[in-house]
Design a binder for these strands. Structure first.
Lengths: 222, 222
DNA sequence: TCCTTTCGCGAACGACGTTCGCAAATTAGG
DNA sequence: CCTAATTTGCGAACGTCGTTCGCGAAAGGA
């Protein structure tokens, strides 16, 4: 029953007792939970509790927990809105990435999902279609375009992930350790970089960073 | 006791009953386990079993499971060997990334670790120092250099992660779904890309991809 | 009405991370 | 040598997790 991806499995049967809930409701509950308490709060029991039902009931809608994660990821992919392309591939792909960052800011758990599972459902396929159509006619091998898609997603996810965890205890401990290493004299470059970074962070550097990366991937600079 | 990162906590006490094992042994056992059975096999109980001891004993060496993951990650960072720089930053950073890919090919679980918790221990600090020294004198803000470091690691991890899971059941199911979507006519670009990719994969495209990305990040093309 | 099919879900299983408390092992001080 | 102080090893237990099983309840078609 589940040797196929969830998107091709029928949601409800036409006969028998009708279902009281839907995949969409489960997805919404899981996303609400994750937005509030993080990804590890998305357990079968807690999603079920969010819906006022029993944990075992979820298995009527979903083969396992990973299916729920796939539903969540694809639901966020559906949040993209596609403006008419400008004709400049670098600008259009950068805009796509910037929009992705905005989505990930709404869902701080999304970067982890994108980085570790990279699954594409219907909305993910639409996104990829859009990406490829921006690149239509561009002299780059199909494989390279697909790599670029993966790379763009990874770059956005990486940035969003860092941003979302910038003030966690874990990162603070980590930074304290690096500062200590920098202070002991054995890592002069690290010390210099730390000193230069000490000031307040300025405006959103992401679009510039991303467009450099995109330009690099599309350009023939190597 | 554990409001500090593991690298600054003393490993053994001078007095009292001497410890029978060391962090290094635990790290080696965990890495062996992960190399053999994957990251999720690295549980307290199984690492302990690998060492012929009890699970609770590990907490004398480590505050929690995440500490073990940090030890593992830093142990792999120690596998880098730093050749004398050539003077060309793009080439030197690309070489660093290519070496990182080789390390990740030896440890297929490493990409996931690098992507989800970017933690730097002593060997990680050495790696970052090397990265920054290659970029010494380069006209790029310190923040941008640190972003570039994170981005390089992410790119390498992403590529290695895809490579390592390319023939998992999960990816096969995923590819079958995308092929089905491509076949139904609603995603022409996807279909075209699939057709163009059907042939056998040629040689290792990674150095070229990576050097384009690095050049993009370092260049002033935006 | 009854039969077939599906659904809801309590109960249970095994594995997980982590804590507690105590016995064993060692060193420091007398 | 003995004792006190200190640290280690770890069995047992707690709460949570994903998942399975089996059964009673609910609906539609004959």
């Amino acid at each position: 029953m589940s040797d196929e991806v969830i998107w091709v499995r029928p949601e409800h049967s036409a006969v028998g007792r009708p279902a009281e809930r839907s995949r969409a409701e489960i997805t919404a509950a899981a996303i609400a939970l994750a937005d509030r308490d993080g990804l590890e709060a998305v357990s079968m029991r807690r999603v079920a509790a969010e819906l006022g039902t029993g944990a075992a009931s979820l298995y009527r809608y979903v083969a396992n927990r990973d299916d729920i994660l796939d539903l969540m990821a694809d639901a966020t992919a559906a949040e993209y809105v596609f403006e008419p392309p400008s004709g400049d591939p670098v600008a259009d792909l950068t805009a796509l990435g910037v929009q992705g960052l905005a989505i990930m800011r709404r869902h701080p758990w999304l970067p982890e999902l994108v980085m570790t599972r990279a699954s594409l459902g219907p909305a993910g396929a639409d996104l990829l279609e859009r990406f490829l159509s921006v690149l239509d006619g561009h002299p780059l091998a199909a494989t390279a375009k697909l790599e670029a898609f993966a790379m763009l997603n990874a770059a956005v996810a990486m940035y969003a992930h860092h941003e979302a965890h910038a003030d966690s205890d874990y990162v603070r401990r980590q930074a304290a350790y690096l500062a200590r290493v920098a202070a002991d004299g054995s890592h002069p470059m690290l010390a210099a970089a730390f000193a230069a970074t000490a000031g307040p962070a300025d405006a959103d550097r992401f679009p510039a960073l991303l467009s450099r990366i995109v330009a690099g991937m599309l350009g023939s600079s190597a």
